[in-house]
Design a protein around this nucleic acid. Structure first.
Lengths: 330, 330
DNA sequence: CTAGGTGCAAATAATTTGCAGAGGC
DNA sequence: GCCTCTGCAAATTATTTGCACCTAG
């Protein structure tokens, strides 16, 4: 029913890309694909047949099934199974893989993503030496609306906007703790050159932080209710892991080499996180934010690694010099 | 194919319980249930029909379906959906709810449990004010055997033994860190009475630890390969969370009240964990271990809470006394 | 005797397939 | 003209149901 694609252009462009990729031809397949992409939510094959019938009486159920299969192969659609004894389909355009909350009472389903769960799943697969291609997480139960009767707090909104919002929130939290981390590290580093590196990184993080904050404000302008909508992307590491943990370690007192080490670990962790999610979402604000970020973190990472190498080689040199002196004394 | 129920007695006893609960009568339903319970793994309705046909030619497919439904209602079986377009069934006797690794290549499925994932799922459901009744986690991909061709490291083994093994491992790790925690706490507590409490708890944890260790050895005797089988129950908190985190906090230096507080938090956490998993597994070694444990932790918890109250009331008394003196001076 | 259990065959429901004709390039 | 897509109807697969009959309590 919803049928509100913000604009039609990207859809067409997107389809052309896919048509090329799919390698097959088009006829009224286009009609089916277009109707499908106009919908939002999870359609059963039958739902789609009904919708198509409104525009073309003589379309066959078999064609709809065949087109659905084609869309799945082409990557336009994903087949999802809510245990109803039939499959449903959701489109994947500007819509990353995600998990589901499924209400047994109204049969509606809500979506979420949890980096923490994904990380655990990866760990488990590795521990069992299982090579995971895809995973399904479904929470069955009763949604708020069905339980309380009344409208729930600002449901819905495009996944695209929600993803961008959460991406930005996480990016901001990370930048903030990165900024703190480098500021603190700069204060406690004895080596003059290392101090310079940390200062420079702190400055960069600070600058990027303000850019992100203004981008966040711009995003809020697009949908006044955006801030009150429920979380889509869960990631505990954002605020508490990564740099925050690093900052805690710093507080315990470390030497310059250790500080660099911690910085490297933090940057590597956040680079991985942003890369993973950046790659998941084709052509969207969230993707751009994450990939830019991943790039910046990679640059920092490289800088830190260079600095680490330089520091250890200088230390080795000094140790060698001391050794020479010791030899001379002997 | 497997068909190795360690002993037949518990199955029969179990069925009697259920028959009473189910409220319905038995005929060749018993045959179907028995054949079903003898199998292990995930059977499709059709697999079961084939198996039954071997023992009774004239049994009807419909009866098998009806009995399967009855078993699900009675709690003997669980219906699982691996997205094949049909359902499979697994029995729940001595077999807690769990998650699945599903190999797309050989269609075999392996089981696991992750307390960490479950905790995250609960958190997400709460954040979205969704009341979760049940959740599904499925990892699709390729298993080791299909990938490497050769036999994988000591696969299989009853879920029951695996669960008991992992339950014991976690219990031992927890006791160990609990022991360390209380030993350290006793050392640094100034208040004489509080020190006594911590010492007593340390002694209890130590004693229980050795009991658990001998139980673990006994378990290993039941299946020589047990120790090399893959992990079934994943729980990061076991070693690193709970008491270990508490011990770390202690190391930073705290006063007596704070030490009690930390102890309370740790005991509460482990009590919850053991209760949750203890309740999940009916009539098994794993269940007994976990519930005994939950009980012991609860007792400790109560002791700590009593001590905390007593300490704060004594402090209040002292503060009041100081206040009186101050008033007298004025 | 009577509620529920059982077999058999027919009904559903979701999805797939064979085949002859239509359409794009 | 060739290759693929499409419609239609029949086939397949998984599961359920109506109905007459049977059986345990």
């Amino acid at each position: 029913m919803g049928a509100t694609s913000t604009d039609m252009e990207p859809t067409t462009a997107y389809l052309n890309t896919l048509r090329a990729a799919g390698g097959k031809r088009s006829g009224k397949r286009d009609l089916i694909v277009n109707v499908f992409l106009r919908q939002e939510g999870h359609l059963s094959a039958d739902d789609l047949v009904d919708l198509i019938k409104r525009e073309d009486q003589k379309i066959s159920r078999a064609t709809v099934y065949r087109t659905l299969q084609w869309m799945v192969d082409a990557g336009v659609a994903r087949k999802v199974d809510f245990g109803e004894g039939r499959f449903r389909f959701e489109h994947s355009y500007r819509h990353p893989r995600h998990f589901h909350l499924i209400c047994k009472s109204c049969n509606q389903s809500a979506e979420f993503l949890s980096s923490d769960i994904e990380a655990l799943i990866e760990e488990i697969a590795t521990a069992r030496s299982f090579s995971a291609r895809q995973s399904v997480v479904q929470i069955y139960g009763t949604c708020e609306r069905c339980r309380t009767g009344r409208q729930t707090s600002a449901e819905g909104g495009t996944t695209e906007l929600l993803f961008a919002r959460d991406a930005l929130r996480i990016a901001i939290a990370t930048e903030r703790s990165g900024f703190e981390f480098y500021t603190r590290a700069a204060k406690m580093t004895k080596d003059g050159r290392g101090r310079g590196v940390f200062r420079r990184l702190a400055a960069e993080e600070g600058e990027h932080l303000s850019k992100l904050e203004s981008r966040y404000r711009a995003l809020l302008a697009e949908d006044p209710q955006l801030e009150s909508r429920p979380t889509f992307l869960f990631f505990k590491g954002a605020a508490h892991g990564l740099f925050a943990a690093g900052a805690e370690q710093l507080a315990k007192g470390v030497n310059d080499r250790q500080a660099l080490m911690i910085g490297i670990r933090c940057e590597r962790g956040s680079h991985r996180f942003f890369k993973r999610y950046g790659e998941r979402f084709e052509d969207s604000e969230g993707k751009r934010i994450f990939l830019e970020f991943a790039d910046e973190e990679r640059a920092h990472l490289e800088l830190l690694i260079r600095e680490y190498r330089s520091l250890t080689s200088r230390q080795r040199g000094r140790r060698a010099a001391r050794g020479d002196r010791r030899l001379a004394r002997a």
